[in-house]
């Protein structure tokens, strides 16, 4: 790994910020896991009751859909904190730390743009996503609530990332050279 050294000493709060955000990511991820567990449990219960001749639970299907949406949107924040989204490195790895810092800065600004738009749409979401979801019994905008939460957290994440890259607090790692050779 060719490493970029930080250009100026990162401020003390950045470390605390990173720790806090990682803890939040663990918390939302645990929430997503709970959604998945709930989906599994209510479906097992439904299959069991139906096949014991006790009648199926009609609310299980719509609730499963609702929990699935929550599961995905809650995981959205953790996906970025844990670096789980797909990126290509064959092109960027041809460049040194300088250009890579610029690339990563553009990436952080793009992330900020997308998440800020999602967050700023909150009033529209609340105004439009009306109507009670059949058999779930809550207003439709509750489907989007965890998306807004993740988008808000990610806006902060990308903003700090962009500032840290611009001021040289973060090192921009360059991908391994063996990857270049394979292309």
């Amino acid at each position: 790994m060719a490493r970029d050294t930080t250009r100026s000493a990162p401020p003390g709060w950045l470390r605390a910020f990173d720790r806090g955000m990682d803890q939040l990511a663990t918390a939302t991820l645990t929430g997503a896991e709970l959604m998945l567990a709930a989906m599994l449990v209510i479906n097992m219960l439904n299959i069991a009751l139906r096949n014991l001749g006790l009648g199926g639970l009609l609310w299980v299907a719509p609730w499963t859909g609702f929990l699935m949406v929550w599961c995905v949107f809650l995981a959205f924040f953790a996906i970025y904190r844990r670096g789980m989204d797909i990126t290509l490195a064959f092109f960027t790895s041809r460049f040194g730390p300088g250009p890579n810092r610029v690339f990563r800065l553009i990436g952080a600004l793009c992330g900020l743009l997308v998440c800020a738009v999602l967050m700023l749409e909150t009033p529209q979401i609340i105004a439009r996503q009306r109507g009670v979801l059949e058999l779930v019994g809550v207003q439709r905008y509750w489907l989007s609530a965890p998306m807004v939460l993740s988008a808000a957290l990610l806006s902060i994440h990308f903003l700090v990332e962009a500032v840290a890259l611009a001021l040289g607090w973060r090192a921009a790692a360059v991908a391994d050279e063996t990857e270049q050779l394979q292309w």
Partner: peptide, 23 residues
Amino acid sequence: RMYPDELAISVWKHLGAELAMLA
């Protein structure tokens, strides 16, 4: 075969049908 519609569910239950939720 039933769909998520509380009114339809109530009516067909009243008529005594067993219901199965299916897309």
